[in-house]
């Protein structure tokens, strides 16, 4: 840690001024309106809005599918990171670059592509149809879209940690008589666990707010496949601003708590590395 009471570099006042002014006007003031607007509702009104059956159902859909998608991504994201870091095969670099596709591809494009793919007559859907599995326009479809969106978060959080793992530690475990599986569960997994947990939280946080990729594949049936962001839009379109802000407040509180958790997780992980 550097301790510097005074720097010779110029521009501190200007750059901090620009940063704080911009953040206040562009980010904090607009976000604050959500909370001031929802304060116009009395507590019972607020409570009855966010506990109405349709809102609760949409919370269940959003949080349930996000949780399922983040769990799938934790398993497969770890596998992908492992294979990319440890093994050498043709096309590895291309696949490595491809992992960021969900960051770069507009969500609407992902949405229509996945919907077409998993529709009953789609490339993947037609093989699932005879098995009685419907994906597009169901809860499963929402999860599929959220898996797509969340994958890079897990891979890109776990990958650098796997890269930095020292092989000597695994050799030591092996030379002390550990089997490969034991080495993996007792040596590798504990070192990667904080990163994996962070990746899970990032994927989950992204999933609960996701709109574009989900709205096409979801079917958007109230009570069954309606996600929270869509419900907010519906309420806005009906000029139910109070209702929309009430639901948004719940979402923002959930998102900000997740952000806080992720920051704490990352700080803890950094401390482990530095120790």
């Amino acid at each position: 840690m550097r301790h510097k009471s005074r720097s010779v570099l110029p521009g501190f006042g200007v750059s901090l001024g620009i940063t704080c002014t911009y953040l206040s006007l562009m980010v904090l003031l607009p976000l604050a309106t959500v909370f001031t607007r929802s304060a116009e509702l009395s507590w019972p009104e607020f409570w009855s809005t966010v506990t109405s059956p349709r809102v609760v159902a949409s919370f269940r859909v959003t949080f349930g599918a996000s949780l399922a998608a983040a769990l799938v991504n934790s398993v497969f994201g770890f596998l992908v990171a492992w294979v990319l870091v440890r093994y050498r095969f043709a096309g590895r670099r291309v696949l490595d670059a491809m992992v960021d596709l969900p960051f770069a591809l507009p969500t609407a494009v992902a949405g229509i592509a996945l919907t077409t793919l998993y529709a009953a007559n789609g490339w993947v859907g037609k093989y699932l149809q005879p098995l009685g599995i419907k994906v597009s326009y169901t809860w499963l479809g929402i999860t599929v879209a959220l898996i797509f969106i969340g994958l890079p978060f897990v891979v890109r959080t776990v990958q650098p940690v796997l890269d930095d793992l020292e092989l000597e530690v695994e050799e030591a475990a092996a030379s002390l008589g550990a089997r490969r599986w034991q080495t993996f569960t007792r040596v590798v997994l504990p070192s990667v666990a904080p990163a994996l947990l962070t990746g899970f939280a990032l994927a989950f946080a992204r999933a609960i707010g996701e709109y574009g990729s989900v709205v096409f594949i979801a079917g958007n049936m109230p009570m069954r496949t309606e996600i929270v962001p869509l419900l907010i839009i519906t309420k806005l379109e009906q000029y139910d601003y109070a209702g929309a802000t009430a639901v948004a407040v719940v979402m923002l509180v959930a998102s900000f708590s997740l952000l806080l958790t992720i920051n704490l997780l990352q700080r803890a992980a950094r401390r482990r590395v530095e120790a």
Partner: peptide, 17 residues
């Protein structure tokens, strides 16, 4: 902070303003 905000809410705040 904006990363943690759902895109829908990011649009909504400007409607509220």
């Amino acid at each position: 902070l904006p990363f943690a905000v759902s895109p829908v809410i990011s649009g909504m705040i400007f409607v509220l303003l």
